[in-house]
Simulated scan of single mutants.
Amino acid sequence: NGEKCLRFAFKYFNFLTLVDAGRVSGLGHLMRQNALAHELSARGHRITFGIRHLPQDRKNLKKFFMDIKNSNINWHPGNPNIRTQINLCRPDAVIWDALAFDVYDWSRSVRKSGLPVFAVGNYPSLPGWIRYCVNPYTRTKLSSHKSKLESSPAYCVLSDEFVHARSVIKKRLFKSAGKSGLLIIPGGGNTNGMIFKIVKALETIPAAVRVTIVCGAFFTEIEKLKSEIKKLKCRIDIEQNISSSEMTQLMLKNDLALVSYGRSIDEARALGLPVLILSSSPLNALGAKHAEKQGGVKYLGDFDRLKVPQISAAISGWLNSPPMRRKLSESGMTAVDGAGCVRTADWIEKELTLL
């Protein structure tokens, strides 16, 4: 208790950040919280991660955290016993970025701890035991008049590489269809086979269009993908598990992106890259519809329900219209200004200080 009083007096805190990551949930939740953790760490706070994942994803997660050279950011491998984590790191607050709130062992332990919880992500509603929420995508239905919400694309959390690129870019020039570059980001995991439907849609794309497919660290069907693209006439490059700096450069040099709904849409909008979105779940569909209203993206629909010719026609239509892409680019840069990580950290600090 004495140590906690000192931390509050000097306004530095311990956070327990709970996220989902792996071939099922992808990498977006972890990347968002990694960016937020670095911002909080720069202010003197300590962050311990608890990650729900499959055992076969542990190797990639270990590598991810080995590359983080920051003593204030820690992860203990293995599916965490949250009660043990709470006892070990003695957090002042929990940051929740899991796919849902009904993760039994997590929610039970966090509720019993009585710690303040900050939900960060696309949550349509909050349970009564969560008081705070930052939702960059949709309006969250609050269960209590005591709950506090910040809901705006101004709170999109970006890594430093995208923030820096956003600060220097003014506007983009859009090439004609024959000289365009198409960037495809089908999610950090396997996304229920979305990429293979997209590949079929590329059969009618002109050979002059440059196509780059970026697969996440948890994508496990890379050899099958390489086999499928050999059948196509257009030139396709495959990248996997690239750095934020490399992704920034790809987004700057391409003219259109086709993206599985997730954190990549924030990065693309910040850099003025027009985005076509495919969703893979009802929650993603809800977020995609709201993102379309915010600007910078066009929601095509659920990839399972869309037919291959529909996806192909959408890609061709947007590639053939530089004015439409320019309009989408400008609205995206207006919606996501690159300062969301700082705003989110400011808000969390302010609310904790008021407790």
Results as ranks from 00 to 15, higher is better:
residue 53 H to N: 08
residue 69 K to M: 11
residue 47 I to M: 10
residue 72 N to I: 15
residue 51 I to T: 04
residue 71 S to I: 15
residue 57 D to S: 14
residue 68 I to R: 05
residue 69 K to F: 14
residue 64 F to H: 14
residue 46 R to H: 03
residue 45 H to S: 05
residue 70 N to C: 14
residue 46 R to L: 01
residue 48 T to S: 07
residue 60 N to K: 04
residue 55 P to Y: 02
residue 63 K to D: 06
residue 65 F to K: 03
residue 45 H to F: 06
residue 63 K to T: 12
residue 69 K to N: 11
residue 64 F to N: 15
residue 46 R to P: 01
residue 72 N to G: 09
residue 65 F to A: 06
residue 56 Q to C: 12
residue 61 L to I: 09
residue 53 H to R: 05
residue 60 N to D: 14
residue 53 H to W: 03
residue 64 F to I: 13
residue 62 K to C: 13
residue 49 F to G: 09
residue 60 N to T: 06
residue 47 I to E: 12
residue 45 H to D: 09
residue 56 Q to K: 07
residue 63 K to I: 13
residue 71 S to H: 12
residue 56 Q to Y: 04
residue 61 L to Q: 13
residue 44 G to S: 04
residue 52 R to V: 03
residue 45 H to R: 07
residue 72 N to D: 14
residue 66 M to D: 11
residue 60 N to F: 06
residue 61 L to W: 12
residue 45 H to C: 07
residue 48 T to V: 05
residue 68 I to C: 14
residue 65 F to W: 09
residue 46 R to N: 04
residue 45 H to V: 11
residue 51 I to V: 10
residue 47 I to T: 11
residue 64 F to Y: 11
residue 61 L to E: 07
residue 51 I to L: 05
residue 55 P to F: 03
residue 60 N to W: 02
residue 45 H to K: 13
residue 57 D to L: 13
residue 57 D to Y: 13
residue 57 D to P: 13
residue 71 S to V: 09
residue 61 L to V: 14
residue 51 I to Y: 03
residue 61 L to M: 10
residue 54 L to D: 08
residue 68 I to P: 07
residue 55 P to T: 03
residue 65 F to H: 04
residue 62 K to I: 15
residue 59 K to M: 13
residue 57 D to W: 09
residue 58 R to V: 05
residue 58 R to G: 04
residue 49 F to K: 10
residue 68 I to N: 06
residue 58 R to D: 08
residue 50 G to H: 00
residue 58 R to T: 05
residue 61 L to N: 13
residue 71 S to Q: 09
residue 57 D to V: 13
residue 61 L to H: 10
residue 71 S to N: 12
residue 55 P to M: 02
residue 42 A to K: 10
residue 72 N to M: 11
residue 49 F to H: 08
residue 71 S to C: 12
residue 65 F to C: 09
residue 59 K to H: 08
residue 49 F to M: 03
residue 60 N to V: 04
residue 65 F to L: 11
residue 58 R to P: 02
residue 70 N to K: 13
residue 66 M to Q: 10
residue 72 N to L: 12
residue 50 G to D: 01
residue 67 D to S: 05
residue 61 L to R: 11
residue 63 K to M: 11
residue 46 R to Q: 01
residue 42 A to W: 03
residue 67 D to L: 00
residue 55 P to G: 04
residue 63 K to P: 07
residue 69 K to C: 15
residue 42 A to S: 08
residue 55 P to L: 01
residue 46 R to T: 01
residue 56 Q to N: 09
residue 61 L to G: 11
residue 57 D to E: 14
residue 52 R to Q: 03
residue 69 K to W: 08
residue 49 F to N: 06
residue 48 T to E: 04
residue 58 R to I: 08
residue 43 R to L: 01
residue 48 T to I: 01
residue 44 G to M: 02
residue 71 S to L: 14
residue 50 G to W: 01
residue 72 N to V: 11
residue 44 G to F: 05
residue 56 Q to T: 10
residue 51 I to Q: 02
residue 58 R to C: 06
residue 52 R to N: 07
residue 64 F to W: 15
residue 57 D to R: 12
residue 60 N to P: 03
residue 66 M to K: 07
residue 54 L to Q: 11
residue 60 N to A: 05
residue 59 K to A: 15
residue 42 A to C: 02
residue 62 K to W: 08
residue 71 S to A: 15
residue 50 G to I: 00
residue 55 P to D: 06
residue 55 P to W: 02
residue 66 M to E: 11
residue 52 R to T: 03
residue 49 F to A: 05
